[in-house]
Design a protein around this nucleic acid. Structure first.
Lengths: 112, 112
DNA sequence: CCATTAATAAACCTGTTAGTTAATTAATCA
DNA sequence: TGATTAATTAACTAACAGGTTTATTAATGG
């Protein structure tokens, strides 16, 4: 899978609020499917599908412990996304500095 | 629109490689629809739809100049995504430091 | 005024997403 | 062993995504 395809899957996985919430829960540590399902008013199969999407994007890994399937977070795709957005950072920073400069000039004008 | 919904749209918009490529082009400066379409082997209506998705996510803004519709980048949603991923940064940094520590210990062991 | 260019709209098709219910697998435990 | 719990699979549905072709809007320029 190319780096671009990895981003396709990562961004698509993160485009659903329930999946982002699941990742936030996993940032606190491992959790079972049932624990992850608890905050949501949907069926267990729907939860299973969300987890499959997250797993497909490499955002979680799953193991097995008796009848439980504990999930844990894998931050690699998040790092990829952070790196991707960094390529645009200079743009918003330049604009921010330009705005600061403008504000400063307006202040000078006002104060004489 | 809530902050969470904004992220829904932003992530969904970024989940398509053609749309990410369009943003990369717009990072160089304004471009018309035709200019943005040039690298892709799809029909103009398909391009129009991609631009509508980007606009819906707030990633581009469009104006009008004669029969042209120049597009320009808006980085606000990218900032939101960068802020969102930052909430996970400590996790991968902690793991990186733990790995460095482990490697250092292994080296000490080897060197005696 | 008419041909050309830029772009969008409308209608349609196909595959995918997000959900459902019902059935199944697999492990625990009384 | 049989009931319970955890989770997935299967089959289905409704809505949406991404693409197409054809038609339309709107501006330019000979």
């Amino acid at each position: 899978m190319t780096e671009d395809e990895k981003l396709d899957f990562a961004f698509a996985a993160l485009a659903h609020p329930a999946r982002r919430a699941m990742l936030a829960r996993l940032a606190q540590g491992e959790a079972t499917v049932k624990e992850l399902a608890e905050p949501f008013d949907v069926s267990m199969p729907a939860i299973s599908k969300h987890l499959r999407v997250l797993e497909g994007a490499g955002l979680i890994e799953r193991s097995r412990n008796a009848q439980f399937r504990p999930c844990r977070l894998n931050t690699d795709p998040l790092k990829s996304i952070a790196n991707w957005t960094d390529q645009y950072r200079h743009i918003w920073e330049v604009r921010f500095e330009a705005m600061e400069k403008l504000l400063s000039e307006m202040k000078d004008l006002k104060d004489g």
